[in-house]
Write a protein that binds this DNA or RNA. Structure first.
Lengths: 111, 111
DNA sequence: TAACTATGTCGTATGTTTGCGTTATACTAC
DNA sequence: GTAGTATAACGCAAACATACGACATAGTTA
């Protein structure tokens, strides 16, 4: 980790940045939207709906899973991915708090 | 752009991802918080307040400026950076819409 | 003019992300 | 057992991000 000083910032800043990073690729945004809308959310279906290979989609799913935003349950041959609503709510609130705090405390700078 | 298929997603997905990318580094999060709180938002002051070199801070400022979230006005020898409230509000709304739409349309998957 | 100060740009080193082909794993059906 | 299907793991190449020192630019002051 020689070339990232991320750890020298405070926890809120790190948390916001990490959440934002998960959302910083359109594929992951699209996957979340897809999961929210579709009932049968199988990994293969997701790659069919996206302009990416199955391998790449699987990697993005893994990142969303690591962040806790989704969860996957093995159901025989297929895997059912769903949004982890509890974690997703928490993430939404963290980001929202950060954005709203900036808006409200933005003292009209003297420029 | 051989190794990024970002352009093959729809505009909302690209917009959300792009905004998230700007917020995906703690330094930029910290810069925004600093700008919101401090009146005299001079470039030198910002780099003093962060555990990064002046060069690196300057680059992060440039990215925030490219995204339109901040604006900088030259005032003689110093440069005064401020949050662009109009753009920042729009960004907050875009991200908020995306997150809330997912929450509300998240049909409890049959797992 | 020259010296000083504040800021931005360039080049470079290193680390991380993206994307996919190939291979491995695991379950189902026969 | 074998054949077929669905998914994950491995490994590689290209692109991008992070961080900084050194140089360039532009205003200030003497």
């Amino acid at each position: 980790m020689a070339y990232t000083k991320s750890t020298e910032f405070n926890l809120e800043q790190q948390e916001v940045a990490q959440l934002a990073k998960v959302l910083s690729h359109p594929a992951r945004v699209a996957i979340l939207q897809h999961l929210a809308q579709v009932k049968t959310c199988i990994s293969g279906d997701i790659s069919n709906a996206l302009p990416l290979s199955r391998t790449t989609v699987s990697q993005h799913l893994q990142e969303l899973k690591n962040a806790g935003l989704i969860q996957g349950e093995i159901d025989g041959l297929t895997v059912c991915y769903c949004i982890n609503q509890e974690k997703f709510d928490a993430a939404t609130q963290s980001l929202g708090n950060f954005l709203n705090n900036i808006q409200s405390s933005c003292s009209s700078c003297g420029c």
